[in-house]
Amino acid sequence: MSDHPTMPAEDDDMLAAEVALGLVEGEARDAARARMLQDRAFARRVADWQERFVAMTDDITPVNAPARSRKALMARLFSARRVPLMQRLWVWQGISFAALAAVAFLAVPLLQEPTVPTQGEVYATRMAAEDSALELLAVMDMSRGDIALRRVSGAAPEGRVLELWAILPERAPISLGVLPDGDVSRVALPADLAAEAAQITLAITDEPPGGAPGGVPTGSVMAAGAVAEL
């Protein structure tokens, strides 16, 4: 690049102009980038050229972008939907700081690809109750239409099963089914509950084997928690 080794400043300034235009390629470009980080005078030259060249846009007429563009941008930047689920769990306010590490650990088996942004709302809750050792973490993933559950502690009383309920204001408890044995399970969320998802309180009762007769809870509430959006 050194056509005039006796005029290094001049060469620098031409190189700076080429950088500003995007004409520097390959290794020379990498070198120029590295230099801009360390050599403030050189970075200054590049900025000066950018300041000069920008005048080429002076006669470009402003054009209003369509409203959908603005909407899409704001959704892209600010919608929680773009945030990976694990990240949402970390910022979840509904759980104590001390439990965060446990949540992260517990959440992993719930989520198949925890770092992939999920497209729908996600709600979560920690289900517990006084006088009960049973504790579960529940994550409602609306894009999948299901609830992932992870048992933290406790179990069904001898000879009983655990049944999951969705509780909504002014409605009878809606059975989401008997929980299978095991610490981790997935339960489908009925599609007609999706619109009211944010208001759901999840509860678990102990019921006779086979589940609550007649679809009405009969046992005691062993754990419950209102969902919060992540």
Partner: peptide, 21 residues
């Protein structure tokens, strides 16, 4: 662009100069 500093000098290229481009 440039190592961040407390008070970087503004570009020496004045607006009046740029308009001559």
């Amino acid at each position: 662009l440039a190592a961040p500093g407390p008070n970087p000098e503004q570009s020496a290229v004045a607006a009046s100069e740029a308009t001559r481009l």
